[in-house]
Design a protein around this nucleic acid. Sequence first.
DNA 1: CACCAGGCAAGTA
DNA 2: TACTTGCATGGT
Length: 227
Amino acid sequence: MLLRASPLRRRLFRLYDALLARFGPQSWWPARSAFEVVVGAILTQSTAWTNVERAIVALRRAGALRAPVLARLPSRRLATLVRASGFFRVKAGRLRAFLRHLGRRHAGHLRRFLRQPVPALRAELLAIPGIGPETADSILLYAAGRPVFVVDAYTRRVLSRHRIVPRAIGYAELQALFMENLPRDPALFNEYHALLVRVGKEYCRTSVARCAECPLRFDLRGRPPRL
DNA sequence: CACCAGGCAAGTA
DNA sequence: TACTTGCATGGT
């Protein structure tokens, strides 16, 4: 995959190099199976990962981190198990919607579901209620190993604070910026996104408080980052 | 105490 | 099409 050099491409590579040099490989996604990636991707919607971990632990203790078991769990019981991840009634419903789709369209086989071509798989994921662009792309990249870049709040915040993109850039535009300017390599997309989340958690919250301590100092040219 | 976190869908203008 | 609001727990 050959990409002609451009200022934007150089900035994206330099940002990646700076992140990797500072934080090292992140070994994402933090899950033991593809099914657990799907569950975590739904549970982490607008929620701190520490709270998702509590819910995952509860599900594991109940033996519910497998499709056949989770699919048979009553909604009240499921809601109780995922309570710590917040929005628990909504998320229990979304997990059930995914399991219902998996059961009806793919005989409950996640592998089979994930094997189809990216465009069809992405469209099918987005058609499941409760799965939007970020959740779908997280599943595509981290559960199915496809070269799809995941955009999230940290991606937008880190790049806009470094003045690489406008603050209000849309999901598709920001995703295209990465996918059209980097080699389409699942391992690269995996690590890049994980690193953005890592630096975001530590230095790039919505409050600008820790922003000044950020070790990257990436192309700010001395100016304070805008909110 | 107030504010925030790895979204999404439904409602309004 | 572009905003706004509800959903909810647990950490800082």
